[in-house]
Amino acid sequence: MPLDLTNRPRRLRRTPGLRALVRETHLEPSQFIYPLFVCPGEGVRKPIGSMPGVAQMSVDEIVAEVGAATGDGVTSVLLFGLPAHKDERGSSASDPQGPVQQAVRAIRAAHPQTVIVTDVCLCEYTSHGHCGIVTDGIVENDPTVALLVEEALSHAEAGADVVAPSDMMDGRIGAIRDGLDAAGHVDTAIMSYAAKYASAFYGPFREAAESTPAFGDRRSHQMDPANAREALRQVALDIDQGADMVMVKPALPYLDILWRVKDTFGLPTAAYHVSGEYSMVKAAGANGWIDEPRAMMESLISIRRAGADAIITYYARDAARVL
């Protein structure tokens, strides 16, 4: 039986130039948000064992790292804080002299064009490692939201461009928006961790942020991995309450969710290529099981192809250099 070769898709795959010419999805360093962990001290770079290439850094080192990332073309960062003091209420989260607040001011002074995003949650600041006020083993929603507003305000006052609530408490986006507006921070944007799943892929992050729960887990407020329609309802609520950007977390196991969110709402959408996703590629690459640079780029392009406008990734500098 003769072949019908009228259409030969391979014609456009023959050379690198042709493949680039018809490429549908493009990655650029400006689409990456680089997560950084700020700790107390000076001259501190403490490597994180489960995340090769990632470290906890003091403010001076963070400023240097942001400068290096800018040189690679990465112009946005996401800051997580590791305080010197923790208590049951996470009271240091809103301390004007806390690590995140100090880092925001230092980055703003040294690199004024950098887009500074700050994580808003209490898990790094509480002695029990949970995302809010705990009473009788239960994370309390409403008292937690009040503290999150205080934390977000302290970040905005330090100079953050975007605050990113990651706690998954009900109503926190509206409360933070109201709090920011009332304090005159009408231009501070909110990037909501809108569809954040109770995932096994956060393990290495909890070492990096020193936020492993002392008891229980976070399934009372993070989403069930089995649920998709619920994610759309959650995102809709956050948009109605004033979110300027929304996020899906993790990324690769939830590309279907990412696609639905972007297709349904059209709002600027981020995806978090989380610590477990990063560490798996790192480990497999170190063992020679996969080609790490190719796997890195394939992962990131798939996230972009699924609809992400911005990708939060520990690979930000590595990928930018490849690009």
Score class of each variant (00 low, 15 high):
S275Y: 07
Y272Q: 04
L252P: 00
S279V: 11
A251G: 07
V261A: 10
W259F: 14
Y272I: 02
L258A: 12
A270D: 00
L255E: 11
T269M: 09
D263Y: 06
Y278M: 09
A251R: 00
Y272T: 02
E277I: 14
V274I: 15
H273G: 01
G276M: 06
G266H: 12
D256I: 06
H273S: 05
L258T: 13
R260M: 14
L258Q: 13
P253W: 03
L255D: 08
V261R: 11
H273E: 12
P253V: 04
A271F: 07
F265Y: 15
Y278H: 08
Y278T: 06
S275T: 13
I257K: 04
W259I: 00
V261K: 07
F265N: 13
V274M: 12
L267I: 15
S279K: 08
T269N: 09
F265K: 14
Y272C: 05
A270S: 13
L252C: 04
W259L: 02
M280L: 15
V274R: 02
Y278R: 06
S279D: 13
L267S: 12
L258D: 12
T269S: 10
L252D: 01
D263N: 14
L258N: 13
T264V: 10
L255S: 11
M280F: 12
S275D: 15
A271D: 08
L267T: 15
L255I: 13
R260L: 13
L252N: 01
P268M: 07
S275H: 11
Y272P: 04
L258G: 12
A271Y: 06
Y278V: 10
D256T: 10
G276H: 03
L252E: 05
E277T: 13
Y272R: 04
A270I: 00
T264C: 08
M280V: 14
K262Y: 08
H273I: 01
A270Y: 01
A270P: 00
R260W: 01
D256P: 07
A251V: 03
P268W: 06
S279Y: 03
I257W: 03
L258R: 10
P253A: 10
Y254Q: 08
D263V: 03
G276L: 07
S275K: 05
I257V: 15
Y254R: 09
A271Q: 02
L258I: 11
Y254G: 01
Y272D: 09
P253K: 12
H273W: 07
Y278N: 05
S275P: 09
M280G: 11
D256N: 13
T264E: 15
P268A: 06
G266W: 11
